[in-house]
Nucleic acid binder design. Structure first.
Lengths: 334, 334
DNA sequence: TTGTAGGCGTTATCAT
DNA sequence: ATGATAACGCCTACAA
């Protein structure tokens, strides 16, 4: 920086201003400085800047895994929007494991993240204390719970699944089953199963009659879970899956068993992954607002970091996609 | 840090040592210090540390987009391995645009990235100068070109596509077509098309006879490109796609036109995305070693940053998956 | 609008 | 094995 200042015939203070608040330096001096910066290939030292300014303009995000395309897509939108706000993304993943997530949270704070994006509310309260101690604002995504003590941006997993289940019940199904991701340490999966039960209760069915199998997300695991469910007596006539991969596995297994979908059994998914559209039959599913979540999260977190404000939680709508795997819509009641 | 030192009855220097080289401090003092750290919830200041140590233990990566699952999967492996090496990931994306990529490269350097992972070799030489000036080691992924002036970890796009095309030619096809991603600013797509031509030439076919359509990656765009190719006279009997999404689009379009696959036209993809396995018929494709690339890249870059060494480029094998969309294997020549 | 100067929290060197 | 003490490079009142 001293070199730049010397070459432009100004003090380092002016160079600093020119970089951080161009408006506060005369256009001609600015041009001289910018030329010097270009000529010398100067790039400010990150450590020094962070130390002096007490911020890094960096936002950390910890997601379960990029292997799940819904998180990848949400993050893509988040990262792009972050850049537009002048922020950079520090990324870590937890593999759905609370212990790894905790380690990553501590790491990202130690790496100077000005703010953090986390998936779901549920984690050790001590972690929230740690973040508060270090004055690191947190935004929670992928859920919407206005009662939570932290701002969030997302959708109502329970309501979305309740709506999908209602569509299933509309088609006359009575024996329902669910293939869910593991519900331990995961409020999203739990809310989705709760949504199925809520819809059943609303129609006078016994929520306890719901057959539930939990398994990690995957086509293979979904197929195994489907085999298990189809072996039960009485056999469910509709299988509501907590994720599209599980739904694809169920679809495959149904076909392998010679069952017609939706003739013998209806199947639904959740997430609206690309592969659901090319499935045969296309998989009915819940489209979640990844992109809007990512973009909104970037704006909210940037505001939280810059102004220290605590924004209201934002709820984004899901869309229920009634595709062929669910079966045709019933005749509308006169 | 001063608080910790005071509480543990030592100097800040010892605290620093305890954090950075625990072996160099007596076990008992270490315990006192660690207790103090826990009690106070101390976390070292990143800026100060970076300034003094002249490193951030942070690696930057710039990929085209996380919306493409092959990059998402590669990055997941990269990030996980990075953590095991004690490094953290700074992530940016370019949307396949050289101007945005350049901006991101400069940003990540300014954000203190100790090293950079980039996709493909092709970019403005001035950028490589900039990186050299700032002593930021670069590793290129997703390609393998031992002749390049930089280390890389990846696979030989041309050879992989040549192998796939050979399999196509084995089945007696003579009129070939390719649906490729845009080849401008993209050495991977270019290499893949070159691979198709090389295989043709090796069999005595005229490489110039290859029908090529370029379009962005996507199912919809792939379908459009397929419609265009099928309208040509003579009509190609095999369509070799540079990406699975394009292949899925071609598959869909073929079916929409009443063409049987592989009866009337064979279709192949590239990348082995999950959706290719659930397609009907399953899409023949090239499986690329995302995970190994990511893991290897993390180890190589960490070494480059820590020891300042320049490793040899690493070539990883692809696998040709001869699925139903390609058609049955010919009788083996006696 | 521009220059001066103190301080940001660690690391690392050099004694002890 | 531990302590004292210079850097590290920039930002930001404050003064001019």
């Amino acid at each position: 920086m001293a070199d730049v200042a010397h070459r432009a015939g100004v003090s380092t203070a002016t160079v600093s201003r020119c970089v951080n608040a161009p408006a506060r330096v005369q256009p001609e001096t600015r041009e001289r400085i910018e030329a010097a910066i270009r000529d010398l290939g100067y790039s400010p030292n990150f450590g020094a800047r962070a130390l002096a300014a007490r911020r890094t303009d960096t936002i950390g995000a910890i997601i379960p895994t990029l292997d799940n395309s819904v998180f990848a897509r949400g993050l893509q939108a988040f990262q792009t929007a972050l850049v537009e706000h002048g922020m950079t993304l520090l990324l870590a993943s937890s593999s759905y494991r609370p212990d790894l997530e905790e380690a990553q949270i501590r790491t990202l704070v130690a790496r100077g993240a000005d703010g953090l994006l986390l998936i779901g509310h549920e984690r050790d309260p001590a972690l929230y204390d740690f973040l508060a101690l270090h004055r690191v604002p947190v935004l929670v995504a992928w859920v919407h719970d206005p009662a939570a003590p932290r701002p969030s941006v997302g959708f109502d997993n329970k309501a979305a699944m309740e709506a999908m289940t209602s569509a299933v019940l509309d088609r006359g199904h009575v024996r329902l089953a669910t293939i869910s991701g593991h519900t331990r340490f995961n409020d999203r999966t739990r809310d989705r199963v709760a949504g199925v039960r809520a819809a059943m209760a609303a129609r006078g069915l016994d929520p306890a009659a719901l057959a539930v199998v939990e398994t990690p997300y995957g086509i293979e695991t979904g197929a195994q879970a489907m085999a298990e469910l189809m072996a039960r007596d009485p056999r469910p006539t509709a299988v509501i899956c907590g994720n599209d991969l599980l739904g694809m596995g169920a679809l495959r297994q149904a076909r392998a068993m010679g069952l017609r979908v939706p003739g013998d059994v209806s199947i639904t998914g959740f997430d609206d992954m690309e592969l659901s559209t090319v499935a045969d039959p296309p998989l009915a599913t819940v489209a979640i607002p990844h992109a809007r979540m990512g973009t909104t999260a970037a704006a909210m977190l940037t505001g939280m970091v810059r102004d220290g404000t605590r924004p209201d939680s934002v709820a984004l709508p899901c869309e229920i996609l009634l595709r062929a795997s669910l079966g045709p819509a019933p005749l509308s009641p006169a």
